[in-house]
């Protein structure tokens, strides 16, 4: 076995990459629509599954869907979009086994398909059992699936293949070799982003029987972790900003921006749900602010917070995968040199 894969060995599969990009472009809107379903409490607007009010999912009268109640519109729309994602995932597996010669990529594609099936089933069971906790699990599994989609898009991309070219690597001696510490930081970013998603989901799907103390604990941890995560993105960016590889430094910078936006959206989410907290009454207008139940802008802020959380996880995962790839390449390089 040769130590380094050349670009010839990794046959280009444009079709697979395009399909993975397509699924990324579909899943983020899917997360938005899923978030809206929860924001509008529309999760139980279609009480049966896998059909919709007795109809096959794809045969449900489109006029009733488009011009019926808003709850039905978003819930059925969420299911349809989910089904489309499922079909694209099937296409990805076919393309992978047809064109892709890296075995681990093929199996990652299979895992992706299994995840989309599991996610659909989770959504279905949540409806059939009318269970809020399962809605939370469904809500947490979606971002993980999105992150896997992004990773697949990265590893099937042209850039990844170029990076695998040992000749190119050797010519770019200025490119940083990530240290263990940096790799650990990148993993921590992924883990913390996901922990934040879990905490957020616990707040969003809070049980009626949850104690005030327990909820307060979740809220406090969510807030503290948010600022800790923000500080970590700053630290990662400081290490990457002059690494000579834009595929690393750019996501690092984007993460700082995304977490800042996410913190602002988080404050907004709290305010539109519960009003301004006591320690922020210095904000002009806070003492006259009126919470509006089910307001459109308010709902978009809340759902935007959910969707941005997924984006942070996906970008962190992308950065992490690229960093590890870079480390692996450096290791291969050293092997060649010796």
């Amino acid at each position: 076995m040769t130590a380094v894969n050349s670009s010839d060995e990794i046959a280009p599969s444009r079709m697979l990459h395009r399909l993975t990009v397509l699924i990324v472009c579909l899943v983020w809107p899917l997360i938005w629509v899923g978030g809206l379903v929860t924001t509008y409490d529309a999760g139980m607007s279609v009480p049966d599954w896998p059909g919709t009010y007795g109809y096959n999912l794809f045969l449900y009268p489109y006029k009733t869907w488009l011009f019926g109640p808003f709850d039905l519109f978003i819930e059925h729309g969420h299911r349809l979009l989910g089904a489309v994602v499922g079909f694209v995932a099937i296409g990805i597996v076919i393309a992978a086994f047809w064109k892709e010669n890296r075995r681990w990529v093929r199996w990652l594609c299979v895992a992706l398909l299994l995840m989309v099936i599991a996610q659909g089933a989770l959504g279905g069971v949540r409806v059939v059992l009318s269970d809020r906790t399962l809605a939370m699990v469904h809500g947490c599994f979606g971002p993980a699936f999105f992150a896997i989609c992004v990773i697949l898009a990265v590893v099937t991309g042209r850039r990844w293949r170029q990076d695998s070219d040992a000749e190119r690597l050797r010519s770019s001696t200025s490119i940083l070799t990530p240290t263990k510490k940096l790799a650990a930081l990148a993993i921590s970013l992924v883990v913390l982003s996901y922990v934040q998603l879990l905490l957020g989901a616990m707040m969003r799907h809070v049980q009626p029987t949850t104690s005030a103390g327990h909820f307060a604990g979740i809220v406090s941890t969510h807030i503290l972790t948010a600022f800790f995560l923000w500080a970590m993105t700053g630290l990662v960016w400081l290490r990457l900003r002059r690494c000579g590889d834009l595929t690393l430094s750019r996501p690092g910078g984007i993460l700082i921006f995304l977490v800042a936006v996410q913190i602002a959206l988080g404050i907004g989410t709290w305010v539109v749900n519960y009003g301004w907290p006591s320690f922020m009454t210095w904000v002009p207008g806070s003492q006259s602010f009126l919470v509006q139940a089910k307001g459109f802008v308010d709902s978009m802020i809340v759902t935007g917070h959910v969707a941005t959380g997924s984006l942070i996880l996906a970008v962190s995962a992308m950065l992490c995968v690229r960093l590890f790839h870079r480390r692996w390449q450096a290791k291969q390089d050293r092997l060649v040199a010796t």
Partner: peptide
């Protein structure tokens, strides 16, 4: 109409999650 495949997944998922997790 009952579709076999989704129901298989539903049964599998039901077995996995048990009778529901809500308090």
């Amino acid at each position: 109409k009952v579709s076999l495949l989704p129901n298989c997944f539903l049964i599998a998922a039901l077995l996995l999650v048990g009778p529901g997790c809500d308090a």
